[in-house]
Design a protein around this nucleic acid. Structure first.
Length: 768
DNA sequence: AGGTACTTATAGAGT
DNA sequence: ATAAGTACCT
């Protein structure tokens, strides 16, 4: 019996399937479990999977939840429409695109595309490029869209206009208008448009609203605390017919207000939905009592919250270990030692550890230390796979084939690899496109019939390029994503171009492209079963495995959707990325004022509260043990910055800390409890000098030799083709050698682990 | 048109 | 520290 697996509160929340329900779920209280069982329960009650819509925060969460539901109730669950707001709504928008004057193949612009559009608008309007920085403008436009202000609304809104004038950027409204115009001309939507345009669709097309209201009799929303107004309104409209809506969230874990999420959605739920029932899940199954209590003591400092008491029956557990170290390097080494010690003494595995931090840039020092200590790790965030240049290049080819009007894709690849179409030509094309009010591709195909200053030879090259792209476009609906994709990659010549470089980096890029081909393959061939389109209910086989669908999926993919793999590796990620995850051992690094809480958050009470919630999220990721570190000085943008420890440390009730605060002296790195000796190198050593310019060869000599490091002159003994042995990767053959001195690298093909790029100084390769 | 050398902006979380 | 943009040379 399904309900037997749940506690009392969870069961009550699951059983109430009619009406509006809000589940306030404390950290670790089995939120996902409750949601999963609720959907399974709906199916068990005979409700059709077609009538269920479930919106989650990541695609991966949706996938996992679906799998679990299939386990519980069988294959019918496959037809439940489940995914992130953006991916589900993108699918609906594609189906109904014509009603909005879009084509089905519209492109989804990522942040880079958006910024580049803004940049060219600012340039053409001859505005001050420093004042009108793309990120500032985009942020402003994004906030407007998330609150459903169209560019016309914006232009008529005195409040917004005044705000812009106050910050000396009165032209934002006009940029917004032009930006939207250009996106539409390119048949593109940005992330916010996916939500905005669905609102427009539901507002202007009563038949469509009715259709989806009929269809979605039961709506579930996960992570409700992180929804914005635009999302809120969609849910509200869709649910207003049947009124069966269930939202799950935790106001204490709301951490996305910077991208428009508003905690009001949770706080006002009762007002918005009459007769709403609210359930609270307060028993934590994840963490020790000490961790739960410490987290409670921190979040108590926030004024705005729904009262709840998270408690646990788990063991009391260890106190939180807080360590203030001299530098970011020492912090990283301390973390490494602590990991090593726990692995040796407590039989922990690498994958049981997560190192969390506030900003992506902090990963660098940590990575370096982990590599030096031969601790395997996996980095999340930063440059994700799909954001890599070579991948974006290939995807731009796909995009242009899929949507000829995609100007950003056109600009990216028209002369990459170089085919003799330079800046002058591109500017002339832009001019023509503006005159004809159409896309760059459209003027390019008919270039020979238009008057232009472009010479014949160049014209021919452009026309030929477009002819090829067009010929691929014709195959979009008939060829699957893999066949077409591989063909386009061959046509692009990017792999040949990279091959010519003959560097390790280029080889790596080629590998990444192969990886992309793999993902095309698994996209096309995944799941041998009959596939059911959750949206239309159609049974489909290979039909929808097109390149366009692949692109849509890829552009909405995030790091959180990548598999954590079964690999035994320490995980490095930002706290934002750690939302919803849990680890036996958690480190929170960089607990310093102006870093966490971030300097930018200290101006308003609301922002500081959000930072505190972020800290709360970080603490509550830990199951067994929590370790917090800070550094007195660290490098930020190439300069040395000194900091005090974070105010949030002082907010933890000292009762839950293993040692009194204000430890002025740094402890040796291996010293976990402040009282034992250690054999690790971490005696006083010179920190890099203050002046950034002075990090010359002299001061480099001052640095301690890395453990396992080999003097540079010893690195010349390696040769391509040699058999070598690596401590953790085993046997392999050297394929490529590159670089000089300390940065000399080798690409080695290992028997079991495949190709790896190794820094020879650290890798300790033995020649066989 | 394409490549290299120098300058400058940018470092807050991410769909 | 680094990526991206610009100026200048071939």
């Amino acid at each position: 019996m399904l309900l037997d697996d749940l506690n009392l509160q969870q069961r009550e929340a699951v059983k109430q399937i009619e009406g509006a329900v809000m589940i306030i779920a404390g950290a670790g209280s089995g939120k996902t479990r409750t949601l999963t069982y609720k959907i399974a329960y709906l199916l068990e009650q005979g409700i059709s999977p077609y009538n269920i819509l479930a919106l989650t925060f990541t695609n991966k969460a949706a996938e996992e939840m679906k799998e679990r539901i299939i386990d519980l109730t069988g294959n019918t669950a496959k037809s439940i429409l489940m995914g992130t707001f953006h991916s589900v709504f993108a699918r609906i928008l594609r189906l109904e695109a014509d009603r909005l004057g879009y084509v089905r193949n519209f492109t989804i612009y990522d942040t880079d595309d958006s910024k580049s559009v803004i940049k060219s608008i600012v340039k053409e309007k001859h505005l001050d490029e420093k004042l009108y920085s793309p990120s500032f403008i985009l942020d402003r436009i994004s906030k407007a869209k998330n609150n459903l202000f169209s560019s016309t609304d914006y232009l008529n809104n005195t409040e917004l206009l005044t705000e812009d004038r106050m910050v000396k950027r009165p032209e934002i409204a006009n940029i917004y208008k032009e930006y939207n115009f250009r996106l539409r001309r390119a048949m593109a939507m940005d992330f916010d448009d996916l939500l905005f345009n669905l609102n427009v669709l539901l507002r202007d097309c009563p038949d469509i609203l009715d259709k989806y209201q009929q269809r979605f009799k039961y709506i579930m929303v996960d992570e409700y605390q992180d929804t914005n107004y635009s999302q809120y309104l969609i849910i509200k409209k869709l649910s207003s017919k049947h009124g069966n809506i269930c939202v799950v969230g935790d106001d204490a874990q709301s951490i996305y207000s910077f991208r428009g999420a508003t905690i009001r959605n949770i706080l006002n739920f009762k007002k918005d939905y009459k007769n709403a029932t609210i359930y609270k899940l307060e028993q934590n199954y994840r963490s020790t009592q000490n961790i739960v209590n410490a987290a409670n003591s921190v979040i108590a400092n926030n004024e705005n919250q729904i009262s709840k008491e998270v408690w646990t029956e788990n063991e009391y557990g260890r106190k939180i270990n807080y360590m203030n170290l001299d530098s970011d390097r020492e912090e990283a080494f301390y973390i490494c030692s602590a990991i090593r010690q726990r692995i040796e003494e407590e039989y922990a595995h690498y994958k049981h550890f997560a190192v969390l931090y506030r900003t992506n840039m902090q990963s660098r020092a940590l990575e370096e230390a982990l590599r030096l200590r031969n601790i395997p790790y996996r980095l999340y965030g930063g440059i994700s796979f799909y954001a890599r240049k070579e991948i974006k290049d290939i995807l731009a080819y796909f995009r242009l084939v899929s949507n000829n009007n995609d100007n950003e894709a056109f600009l990216r690849i028209i002369n990459y690899p170089a085919r003799g179409i330079g800046n002058t030509t591109i500017n002339r094309l832009k001019l023509l496109a503006a005159e004809q009010n159409t896309s760059l591709f459209n003027v390019s195909v008919q270039l020979n019939t238009l008057p232009s200053d472009i010479n014949k030879a160049t014209r021919d090259k452009i026309v030929e390029f477009c002819r090829m792209i067009s010929s691929y476009s014709k195959l979009l609906d008939t060829e699957n994503a893999l066949n077409l994709g591989e063909e386009i990659i061959r046509f692009s010549g990017i792999k040949i171009e990279l091959h010519k470089e003959e560097t390790i980096e280029a080889e790596e890029k080629i590998n990444n492209i192969e990886e992309l081909i793999n993902s095309l393959q698994s996209f096309v061939f995944k799941d041998d079963d009959i596939l059911i389109d959750e949206l239309t209910g159609e049974e489909i086989y290979q039909q929808n495995r097109t390149l366009t669908t692949f692109l849509s999926q890829v552009s909405l993919m995030t790091d959180a959707d990548m598999d954590l793999e079964d690999n035994d590796k320490v995980v490095l990620m930002t706290i934002h990325a750690a939302k919803g995850l849990e680890f036996p051992y958690v480190f929170i690094a960089g607990m310093e004022e102006n870093l966490f809480p971030s300097m930018l958050s200290l101006t308003s009470r609301a922002d500081t509260e959000e930072e505190r919630r972020l800290f709360y999220v970080a603490i509550t990721r830990a199951q067994k043990e929590l370790l917090i570190t800070s550094a007195r000085m660290r490098f930020r943008y190439g300069e040395l910055v000194f900091s005090e420890h974070s105010r949030f440390i002082d907010e933890i009730d000292p009762e839950y800390l293993s040692q009194p605060l204000h430890t002025k002296k740094a402890f040796p790195a291996g010293n976990l409890n402040g009282n034992s000796n250690s054999n690790t190198q971490n005696t006083k050593k010179p920190i890099l000098t203050l002046k950034k310019k002075s990090v010359s060869s002299d001061s480099k000599l001052e640095l301690p030799k890395p453990i396992g490091g080999v003097p540079a002159h010893m690195l010349n003994k390696y040769e391509v083709g040699q058999q070598v042995v690596h401590a953790s990767f085993g046997k392999g053959i050297i394929l490529i050698l590159d670089g000089e001195g300390d940065s000399r690298k080798a690409v080695v093909e290992f028997e079991d682990k495949g190709k790896k790029t190794l820094i020879l100084r650290f890798a300790k390769l033995e020649i066989l």
